[in-house]
Design a protein around this nucleic acid. Structure first.
Lengths: 346, 346
DNA sequence: TTGAAAGCGCTAACAG
DNA sequence: CTGTTAGCGCTTTCAA
């Protein structure tokens, strides 16, 4: 390992000067910098960032935790985070939790052990350490930013869309198309996001004076498979729904498969609408109408927020809400049923 | 920041004892460990891993680099890597390159700067620093394991499937179903993996005495969209193919959409086969026949390989080949065309 | 503009 | 089984 002393010796300067030449070139004589550069090139030196972190007590590294790296929705958000991080000299490291608390805590531990300066959470549980601080009514002990997620009672800075309004918009779209019997495949009910999306659905029904029916709500877990299963159950109802609002695109894609297998034509017999606008949505059969979130912008805003948290310039509980958009494709259309609605009396 | 000295003081022992109590409990008297534990709990101490890394000259951290975190195929591999890493006291950190050399090099830099001990590359370019060492015929300067990828001339340990054999199997399946006019949507031609998959396709044709036709090969970039575009081009041929082997599932899903839009029935008019068995494959319309790779096992093997590299026990250029499997679903069936093959003369 | 030196928090000899 | 002590490689006063 060639280190800063080797460079200093070869360049004929002190280690302090080498350090300065690298970190604050403005304060070192150009000729000296040149000597240092040559020594670095000659010895193929690269600074030990671990030592630097220890000394400076910061790593310029941010941990980003996502539940599933394969969820197409998170890609854009991570992209946005990286954009801003890179422009500001931060490195970003990704952790995947699989909705597993232990894994989440393992990544969070990198903060308490100083391997990282901050944590950006994308839709996931809260780290145990944050939950505890919450229970004791203290501020989270680590710099934390929430993206696309919210936790009741936690006032960390966050960036998100208005999930209630977006779900209301989606459901209203179905109502506008003439549907009255509208079901929803929701997310897990312990998830605040799911709660918001269900709320938007209920709000839209209420405004349209359509009665909310408990048995038109089927809970999924955001996976394709759970959408398929939920749809199968909905189709077994005495009177099946004519439209479905799914709390994410993956469940919608699973639901579409179940509908196809049941011989239903979409959108004629059944309108389906998703949420997220993942890349597969456009290629679904039929192409999926959905709510698009500005993923890259969400990521960019989250990282900017993190920087201001680290600077100490973030406002307490700052909350950024970005706009959503209804993307109309073929999966949701007016009701023109070719198949009877009722299972038993045809 | 409470540190190891604070603990030592409160527990009434030396810092060395605290360190040992944490790292090698077997060598410390139980009663002493108990005192240390209490002090740690009382002061809410967590060890500074940066200091530990600096002192030990290892971080017990492995960087895993993937081209796109949203590619569903990588999820299982990362999962497998994490399984083994965790069992062996390693942390894993994910980097996404977007096929961008600069980003790849940025993650690789964490190795030269000692932030990580090793690098597992999932299908991507090679870091510049590795390319250089290759050009100068030296060993890569960093512990490196390749998963699901290969680079001509590089003898780093790797784990993969036999892509040539798997592609041959896929193509033979189409031939067995009676197809003679078989096209392929390949990956980018500068990608060795694409080359292997194209080779397997050609091998199968050759064995079956079917002439290879250049214009039945269309190059994609592994994205859904490129599959859609490639299929559109294939359907514009004077005589369209009756079967397509796609070098990955995403392109196959794009191709399916183009086929549906052209009014082709699958599998009657057109058989399609993919590669990877991503989670969406089963939900495609029609469900996609494809080659499944043992993703989790690939990841596990890769991490085991990394551990042996770090131990110095890995054999030079060790290469693990895991079995693949043909998953038959509805998208590939015998030819029973309802639509004329030829565009111009019906 | 540069150098000397202290020390970030931890671990691993070494000695007892 | 435990304590003393010397650094790991770097940055940052402080002084010149």
């Amino acid at each position: 390992m060639t280190n800063i002393r080797d460079i200093a010796r070869l360049a004929g300067v002190s280690v302090a000067t080498v350090s300065r030449a690298l970190a604050k070139p403005g304060v070192v004589r150009p000729a000296t910098i040149e000597k240092v550069k040559q020594a670095i090139a000659a010895l193929d030196y690269s600074p030990n960032l671990v030592a630097s972190s220890l000394r400076r007590q910061r790593s310029d590294t941010i941990i980003v935790v996502v539940p599933n790296i394969h969820n197409p929705f998170y890609s854009g958000v991570v992209q946005g985070i990286e954009n801003i991080a890179h422009d500001n000299g931060y490195k970003i490291l990704l952790g995947e939790t699989q909705n597993n608390q232990e894994r989440l805590d393992r990544y969070t531990a990198m903060l308490t052990s100083k391997g990282a300066d901050g944590l950006i959470l994308l839709g996931s549980r809260l780290p145990t350490i944050v939950q505890e601080s919450l229970a004791e009514d203290r501020e989270p002990p680590i710099p934390l930013v929430l993206a696309c997620e919210r936790f009741d009672g936690l006032s960390s800075p966050s960036v998100e869309i208005d999930n209630i309004a977006a779900s209301r918009l989606a459901t209203e779209h179905l109502i506008d198309l003439g549907h009255k019997r509208i079901a929803t495949i929701s997310g897990p009910k312990d998830n605040p996001l799911s709660g918001d999306r269900l709320q938007g659905y209920r709000d839209a029904l209420k405004t349209a004076h359509i009665r909310f029916e408990r048995n038109l709500v089927v809970e999924g877990d955001f996976s394709i498979r759970s959408g398929y299963i939920a749809m199968t159950r909905l189709l077994a109802r005495d009177v099946r729904p004519t439209a479905i609002f799914c709390a994410n695109d993956e469940m919608a894609i699973g639901a579409q498969k179940a509908a196809r297998e049941a011989g239903l034509k979409m959108p004629g017999d059944l309108a389906i609408i998703g949420f997220d606008d993942i890349r597969f949505a456009e290629y679904a059969e039929p192409p999926l109408t959905t709510i698009a979130q500005p993923t890259v912008e969400i990521g960019e805003a989250a990282m900017r927020l993190m920087i201001s948290v680290l600077d100490g310039t973030a406002a307490q509980g700052e909350r950024i809400v970005l706009p959503h958009e209804l993307v109309k494709r073929a999966s949701a259309g007016p009701l023109t049923a070719s198949v009877p609605l009722s299972t038993d009396n045809g």
